[in-house]
Design a protein around this nucleic acid. Structure first.
Length: 722
DNA sequence: CATAGCCGCCTTTTT
DNA sequence: GGCGGCTATG
């Protein structure tokens, strides 16, 4: 505590940073210095004599981990503490204790694409059709089970109704396929680690001794498996220190359980609770509407956002004709701000769904504004990248059938579907892996001679690569690219061969970077690492470019000026959450809240009257959230209404009026949209379920908040649109 | 067996 | 509007 470096902390921040031992929960609103508290706490612990390697800090993304590492070093602490995400930590643990976890340490990590492939197969293997049992839904269900540490055996024993029993079968088959491929999915990483700790007290103890202090950021977004992992690690000493904000919990759909943070005191008796309510990021102009919005959520602990900054410019809500006008206006406003001196890196545009980035990109290109779409995984989803990685994966893990099937005939080498089917049948009949089946192709009677030769050549090539797969990754990747025929394949793809080559070069660069930074480069480790990259990981904070990202990706970031587009019912809140489930709606509200509170001084919210959805131009309904931002806010806008500024094409700076938009829609009486909010004189608020267009005699089916559903004649019903 | 073209599907958010 | 999978054709 000797150092002046802690002087700038507030009293509550200091209380958190210098918390000695035992469990502590830091309830911290947006912009209150959460990450700073963890960073300084690492430093304070080390100052007090704790060895760096006895500290484990968990962040939400790899990007956040990288930044925290740099900050820890920047405030004068030598590196050495373990800072990573839960998933990365689990991979390390699982590799180290693979035998005790009952897995092969060279496991592949299966991403969404791999998972759906396996799930499709699993559904098929159960002789079920994918209409009644959509693989995507089954995957969600299995993921939820894994997040709650429900194993196949456990779930099977519990399944009593038809659906559960069927799901249990699907789950079992899916797990079998994964294990045959020697693969783990994202949820497995957590579940297997949690179960390992449960089953092997010695491993648990060893980890607990290694990590004498556990710090977790974004604790509101941890799921049950992560909670159990944390609990196991600290079981010997209870030195758990978590930081989070229940109002920023936006990953419920992924199993995040807000009770982890709400029940912290119950879980760890004697826990110290520290609140950080002061906001150092945003002006009151931004915090006020944010506060009013989040206050609408019923399922929450009340908490005020206390501004510490001076008032600044007003937040703005604008209406545009369609998504192109909206995107254009955003681009123009950004250009204007840039001309006034705002660096491009200080501005960001947020949207609910990734698909929204397209229109924005076009507008940015047209306006010649440098931008970056923050979407890291996209790179790894490119065909040429996946192909090259598949070669590497098959070397690291020959059981990885997904990888093998991907490259066995890429580039074409005359091994077609029939050959593959025969090979597969043989492998299954012999109870060996697909790759081992390939090696024995000579013995398969059903295969023509030509096919055997081709397969033999392929196997020889893979074995050749395998011989130098033990050292650095980059030279191996380069060699495979040149010798496998991938390089020619790409060169022959006419218009985009240049882009593709650049992408491959980029991949080889990342491999080279890995080689250089790793103590002992290993192909397996490299592959496992890149499987865990997240969207934000690709975000180049230093680049002088405007950042475009989803609201989810925006978590933990901050910008001087923030644009949030598409404030329309069905988009934000998203229609998939219009299930009548209040919890889902509240999560969407929190998502909007997270977006708003990323802004330091400028907040520009917008919506479009029409939006192209699935290639069709649709009339939209304003997001109900717009009405929750507060009356002052709405009045600011309507005062402009009186001055006659109603031009929907106005720049964002010329306040368009949100109430104008409402008036506009309510005047058109013969056109309702399913999902739309309406009000009836006697039944009150409701949502349109169906619109039956019969001109003057049109009917509309409305489900009212009272619970009843009514079919009404539009011309007599006197419905007003909200 | 390869390729092109077509049909029909889905389409939230992500480690 | 984009992709995966299927089919028809070479």
């Amino acid at each position: 505590m000797c150092s002046a470096k802690y002087d700038q902390l507030t009293p509550s921040q200091k209380e958190a940073v210098f918390h000695k031992k035992g469990p502590a929960l830091v309830l911290a609103g947006p912009g209150s210095g959460k990450t700073r508290v963890i960073t300084y706490r690492i430093s304070a612990l080390i100052d007090s004599g704790v060895r760096p390697w006895n500290i484990c800090a968990i962040t939400f993304t790899n990007k956040a981990a990288d930044e925290m590492r740099q900050r820890v070093i920047a405030i004068g602490v030598a590196a050495g503490s373990h800072i990573s995400t839960f998933h990365s930590l689990c991979v390390r643990v699982l590799r180290r204790y693979a035998d005790k976890a009952g897995i092969n340490p060279n496991f592949s990590i299966y991403d969404n694409a791999d998972q759906s492939r396996c799930m499709k197969q699993a559904v098929k293997d159960c002789n079920l059709d994918s209409v009644n049992f959509p693989p995507a839904r089954m995957l969600d269900a299995v993921s939820a089970l894994k997040n709650n540490l429900v194993t196949v055996v456990f779930f099977k024993a519990d399944a009593d109704d038809f659906f559960s029993k069927t799901l249990a079968r699907i789950y079992e088959h899916y797990e079998r396929i994964l294990s045959e491929h020697n693969a783990l999915d994202f949820d497995d990483l957590l579940m297997r680690t949690a179960l390992l700790f449960d089953n092997c007290p010695d491993v648990c103890r060893e980890i607990g001794e290694r990590f004498k202090f556990l710090l977790i950021d974004e604790y509101q977004d941890t799921n049950y498996a992560q909670y159990k992992i944390a609990k196991s690690i600290v079981s010997g000493h209870n030195n758990i220190f978590v930081v989070g904000d229940p109002d920023q919990s936006i990953y419920r759909w992924r199993g995040a359980d807000i009770r982890n943070i709400l029940d912290f005191e119950k879980d760890w008796p004697g826990a110290v609770i520290i609140s950080l309510e002061e906001n150092f990021r945003s002006t009151p102009n931004i915090l006020e509407p944010a506060d009013k919005l989040i206050a609408v959520n019923k399922n929450r602990k009340e908490k005020k956002l206390i501004p510490t900054r001076q008032s600044g410019k007003d937040a703005v809500i604008s209406v545009f004709e369609d998504e192109r006008e909206e995107a254009n206006a955003v681009a123009e406003k950004i250009k204007e701000l840039a001309e006034e001196g705002m660096p491009l890196s200080g501005m960001a545009v947020f949207y609910r769904v990734n698909a929204s980035s397209r229109v924005l990109e076009e507008a940015f290109i047209k306006n010649k504004i440098p931008y970056q779409v923050v979407r890291g995984v996209e790179f790894y989803n490119r065909k040429e990248i996946r192909d090259l990685l598949a070669y590497l994966k098959i070397l690291a893990n020959p059981s990885d059938e997904n990888a093998l099937l991907r490259i066995i005939n890429t580039p074409s080498r005359g091994i077609g579907k029939t050959t593959i089917d025969r090979l597969k049948a043989y492998a299954v009949s012999q109870g060996i892996s697909f790759f081992d089946g390939l090696k024995k192709a000579e013995l398969i009677d059903s295969l023509p001679k030509a096919a055997k030769i081709k397969i033999g050549d392929f196997v020889k090539m893979i074995e050749r690569f395998k011989k130098d797969s033990s050292g650095k990754v980059a030279p191996l990747a380069e060699r495979i690219f040149n010798e496998s025929g991938l390089s020619e394949l790409i060169k022959s793809s006419e218009p985009e061969w240049k882009d593709k080559t650049e992408n491959v070069d980029e991949l080889i660069n990342t491999a080279a970077y890995y080689d250089q930074q790793a103590e002992q480069p290993s192909l397996v480790e490299y592959l496992q690492q890149i499987s865990l990259v997240s969207d934000v990981d690709a975000y180049d904070t230093a680049a002088e470019r405007v950042a475009l990202m989803t609201l989810h990706a925006a978590k933990g970031l901050e910008f001087e000026d923030v644009f949030i587009i598409g404030l329309e019912d069905g988009l934000l809140p998203h229609e998939r959450t219009n299930t009548g489930n209040e919890d889902d709606l509240e999560e969407e509200r929190r998502l909007f809240f997270v977006g708003i509170t990323r802004a330091k001084t400028g907040l520009f919210i917008s919506r479009a009257r029409y939006r192209t959805i699935r290639g069709q131009l649709m009339r939209t309904v304003p997001s109900p959230f717009l009405y929750e931002l507060g009356t002052d806010f709405a009045e600011t806008a309507s005062s402009c209404h009186s001055c006659g500024s109603r031009n929907p094409f106005a720049k964002l700076s010329d306040y368009a009026d949100i109430t104008t938009g409402i008036d506009d829609t309510s005047q058109i009486l013969h056109d309702f949209v399913a999902g739309q909010l309406v009000r009836h004189k006697t039944f009150g608020l409701g949502r349109v379920k169906e619109f039956i267009d019969m001109g003057e005699d049109s009917e509309v089916v409305v489900k009212f908040n009272t619970g009843q559903t009514k079919s009404l004649m539009v011309k007599c019903a006197g419905l007003s649109k909200m």
